[in-house]
Simulated scan of single mutants.
Amino acid sequence: MAAFDTVLFDLDGTLTDPRVGITGSIRYALKAMGVEHDPADDLTWCIGPPIQRSFEKLLGAEKAAEGVAHYRERYGAGGLFENELFAGIDDVLAGLAETGIRLFVATSKAHHFARPIVAHFGLDRYFIAVEGAELDGTRSDKAEVIAHLLALHQVDPARAIMIGDREHDIIGARKNGLRNIGVLYGFGDAAELRAAGADQLCDAPTDIPACLVRFT
């Protein structure tokens, strides 16, 4: 028997590349608030952490909620679909599903947006559930999302693996007792993932099955 029977995937930077939609929606929000932004900053550092935290860094705590509201105007109107699958990820998910491994999405993104994105790309046929934050910010921390998913779906953390591209995924996994894989094709780098305590690093989506085999 395999040493795991469940795999949790992050969404942004792990299953899909949301760069255009997220950064475009952030720029829209900043413009709506009359805030000048350095064009040299590509804003990809905002992909992964809860959006509220990104706007706290961009605007300060007092104006962050207003920034998020403007962001969601554009993002909800179509920015969520300015997005694309990473090459090979569909085949990876199909192969894992065929083996009987239980697959879930655990994201800091509000599930109000995450579930339509997963369905848009036809990935919902592979996943038992997509769990994320609430629009009011409840469960925006990745550790909270993972804890909620484990309890709701009766997942044994000792038999589950978390896969993600940012430190939040690794830290959230470790807080909940999950082993983990940090992917290098997303928006985090090796230094960030190693510092967070990644058990393994994976260069490309097609390398995920080989990384998982090392846990058996």
Rank of each mutant, 00 (worst) to 15 (best):
E167D: 11
A158T: 11
L150H: 00
D169M: 08
Q154R: 13
G186C: 12
A191D: 15
A143P: 01
D136C: 12
H153L: 04
I146L: 12
E192M: 15
A160T: 13
K175Q: 15
D189Y: 09
L178F: 11
R179D: 11
V145D: 10
F187W: 01
D156E: 12
H148T: 10
G186N: 11
I146Y: 07
A191E: 14
D156P: 11
A173L: 03
I171V: 15
V183W: 08
R139E: 05
G177Q: 08
N176P: 10
L178Q: 05
A147P: 10
T138F: 00
E192Y: 06
V155N: 00
K175R: 13
L149H: 00
A147Y: 10
H153V: 03
V183L: 12
N176C: 06
G182S: 03
L193F: 14
N176K: 04
E167T: 04
N176Y: 07
G164P: 06
G172A: 06
I181D: 05
F187I: 04
Y185F: 15
L178Y: 05
F187G: 05
G182R: 00
D141L: 13
M162K: 03
I181C: 13
G177I: 06
L178S: 12
K142L: 07
D136G: 11
A191Y: 06
D136L: 06
N180T: 04
I146M: 09
E167A: 13
A151N: 08
G172E: 04
R174G: 09
L152Y: 02
E192A: 15
D165Q: 05
H153E: 12
G182F: 09
D189I: 06
G164Q: 02
D189W: 08
I181K: 05
I146F: 12
I171A: 09
E144T: 09
I170N: 01
G177T: 08
G172K: 01
F187V: 02
V183D: 11
D141S: 01
R139A: 07
I146D: 09
Y185N: 01
K142N: 07
A147I: 10
H148R: 08
R174W: 07
V155D: 01
R179M: 13
A173I: 05
I171H: 11
D169L: 14
R139I: 03
L178R: 01
G164S: 10
G164K: 03
A160W: 04
G137W: 06
L193Y: 08
S140Y: 03
S140E: 15
G164I: 01
G182T: 11
A147W: 04
K142C: 05
D156I: 09
R174L: 12
D165N: 09
